[in-house]
Design a protein around this nucleic acid. Structure first.
Length: 129
DNA sequence: GCCAACGTTGGC
DNA sequence: GCCAACGTTGGC
C-alpha cells in the first residue's frame, strides 16, 4: 500500500499504533482492499518523497464500509505496524531487481493498493533486512 | 457507446 | 515544474 509520507507516513502509523486506511477512491484499489484478510501482511511504500518500501503492517480489521456522503461503495481497512524494514527498499532497487520486474508498483504506478505475490513480498523483506 | 477534455498521481 | 499514465466526466 502506498502513502505520501507528507500526508501519512510509516512513522505516523507507528506513533498511532493503528490507523484506518480510508479515502481510497479507485475501484481497483478498493477491490484489492476487499481481498485482504485479517492478519495479512502489507508492505508500506512511501511515494513522492522517499520512494521506498519502509515497513510491514498487518490488517487488524478486514474491509468495512466507509461512511461518507460520497456516492459509491467505498471501504477501508484498519492497519497496525508490525516491523520496520532496517533498510528501506528503494524504487531504484526494485526496478533493478529482475525478480521484481513484474511488480504492480512498476507496471501500474498510479495504483495505491496492489497485490504482491508471496515471492515478491519475501524478496522485498529480505532486501530490507 | 465513443471520445475529447479535464483532473489526479507520482516519477523525474 | 513538467509530463506520462490513467481515471472520470460530459457532450454528442
Amino acid at each position: 500500500m502506498k502513502t505520501e509520507p507528507a500526508t501519512f507516513s510509516w512513522e505516523d502509523l507507528v506513533r498511532d499504533k493503528r490507523t484506518k486506511w480510508d479515502g481510497v477512491r479507485n475501484y481497483q484499489a478498493r477491490n484489492n482492499m476487499k481481498a485482504m484478510k485479517k492478519g495479512d501482511h502489507v508492505l508500506i511504500y512511501h511515494s513522492v518523497t522517499g520512494k521506498a518500501c519502509v515497513g510491514i503492517a498487518e490488517v487488524v480489521k478486514e474491509h468495512y464500509p466507509e461512511k461518507t456522503t460520497d456516492k459509491g461503495d467505498w471501504v477501508l481497512v484498519d492497519l497496525a505496524p508490525v516491523k520496520k524494514l532496517k533498510n528501506p527498499v528503494t524504487l531504484d532497487e526494485i526496478k533493478t531487481t529482475p525478480s521484481l520486474s513484474e511488480i504492480k508498483l512498476i507496471r501500474q504506478s498510479r495504483l495505491s493498493v496492489m497485490p504482491l505475490t508471496k515471492k515478491e513480498f519475501d524478496t522485498i523483506v529480505k532486501m530490507g533486512s
